[in-house]
Simulated assay, not measured.
Amino acid sequence: MRRIDLVRGDITALVVDAVVNAANGRMRGGGGVDGAIHRAGGPAILEDCVRRFPRGLATGDAGWTTAGDLPARWVIHTVGPDHAAGQRDRSLLVSCYRRSLEVADRLGARSVAFPLISGGVYGWPRDDAVAAQVDTVARYGPGPERVLLVAFDDEIARLQRPRLRAIEEE
């Protein structure tokens, strides 16, 4: 059975096999989690993004690169839907988590850390973003033995706890 832990902190500092990056479609770095991962991981991540994703990555899809200077081995990049720009198809948000777990499984990652995808600057309503995150990660079949759901603020952590508890009680 997969172990899911809630963590309040900096995803770039976690010692896991893979960290998930909430990337933009261009795959050239950006703000929020994406910018933090690129800054902490150094230029090797961007170089690998350019090489592996010359045309970017589609919304809802995922792919991997080196983790550069991060304590993780890989970065799994996924492009969440931009709710604020009108991308409101929830299946794309769910796909981000599912596809990231598929990539982690192919890589043989035993541990992976997820940020809340699309719940920041992309404006997805946080309660629904957390529901998509927790439900998808908890119900996905194969994949990593340990998943960390990383909250960068208290509001996200406050929403994650009861959702995870409800899933565990099912």
Rank of each mutant, 00 (worst) to 15 (best):
M1I: 01
M1R: 12
R2H: 14
R3D: 09
I4H: 06
I4C: 02
V7I: 14
D10C: 09
D10Q: 10
L14S: 06
V16C: 11
D17N: 10
D17H: 11
A18W: 08
A18Y: 10
V19T: 04
V20K: 08
V20R: 09
N21S: 13
N21C: 05
N24W: 05
N24G: 12
M27P: 14
M27K: 13
G29H: 06
G31T: 10
G31R: 11
G32L: 06
V33G: 09
V33F: 08
G35T: 12
A36M: 12
A36F: 12
R39F: 10
G41A: 12
P43R: 15
P43D: 15
I45H: 14
I45A: 13
L46A: 09
C49M: 06
C49Y: 09
R51S: 12
R51L: 13
R51H: 12
R52C: 11
F53S: 10
P54E: 02
P54Q: 02
R55A: 09
A58T: 11
A58I: 01
G60A: 02
G60H: 03
G60D: 02
G60M: 01
D61Y: 09
T65S: 13
T66D: 11
G68S: 11
P71M: 02
P71H: 08
R73M: 04
W74V: 02
W74Q: 04
I76S: 03
H77R: 15
T78I: 04
G80T: 11
G80M: 08
G86F: 03
G86N: 02
Q87P: 00
Q87M: 07
D89I: 02
L92H: 13
L93K: 10
L93Y: 04
S95N: 04
Y97M: 03
R98E: 08
R98Q: 09
R98N: 00
R99F: 00
S100N: 12
L101V: 05
E102G: 10
R106S: 15
R106V: 00
L107Q: 11
A109W: 08
R110Y: 06
R110Q: 14
S111D: 04
S111I: 01
V112R: 14
A113V: 01
A113I: 04
A113T: 01
P115A: 05
G119H: 07
G120K: 03
G123W: 05
G123F: 09
G123P: 04
W124D: 00
D127F: 00
D128K: 05
A129K: 10
A129H: 05
A129T: 04
V130Y: 03
A132D: 10
A132S: 11
D135K: 13
D135M: 07
T136P: 12
P144S: 05
P144R: 12
P144L: 06
E145W: 08
V147W: 14
V147T: 15
L148F: 15
V150F: 14
V150G: 13
A151I: 09
A151M: 09
F152D: 15
D154M: 01
D154C: 01
D154E: 15
E155V: 07
A157V: 01
R161F: 01
R161E: 15
R161L: 03
A166D: 15
E168T: 02
E169S: 11
E170K: 09
